[in-house]
Amino acid sequence: MDRIAENYFNGAVIAAALPAVLRGFGITVLVSLSTIVVGISAGLGLALLRCAAIRPLDIAIAIYVDLFRTLPQLVILVFLYFGMPYLGVTLSPFVTVVLGLGAVLAAFSAEIIWSAILALPPGQWDAARALGLRPVPLLFLVVLPQAVRLATPLITNRAIAITKGTALGTAVSLPETLGSAQSAMAIMANPSPLTLAAALYLLFFIPLVALSRVLERRVARAG
């Protein structure tokens, strides 16, 4: 028991690591929020572009969506960080993670929103057109509000899952929670900072996981 307390719940070590790990946690939160904003707005933009039904554009978006839904997130981050400099493009760790994870979230949200648009009964389009609505108001007043309601729980779940990927930032030198805790662990030769990091992750993600459970319930009841 003493050994566990000494190694994993060492108060002195945790106190020493606290400032660095908290700074890391701040970065985790910032990267997560930026990823969600970038990813969902880009995904919505892509889904709207598909509504324009321009064939070459549709194909390009479909390829983008498949690529970023299929490749592992870590592969994308490593590629951006260690591959792009050969193109003369050097990205900071922060930009790498927000861009990489944002691109993945954009692909998933684009697909989810587009599927939701397709899932609406065709009568919705017909009725709106019969009322004399022009294409753009029809899209924004009739189709999107319903599609977004259908898509929200799925996008929320995906956003939470991808946000957990911010821990991968440690692979591209982003000093987020996990990376800071690992550095502290190496310096102090004691894994208590990892316990601290784990506790912070739980603090951040347990409410989100609970939220996704509530949303799933709501969908299950509606369906």
Partner: peptide, 11 residues
């Protein structure tokens, strides 16, 4: 279940 789901797998 929620604790297992809340941890990033890398952690």
């Amino acid at each position: 279940i929620d604790i297992l789901r809340a941890f990033p797998v890398l952690v």
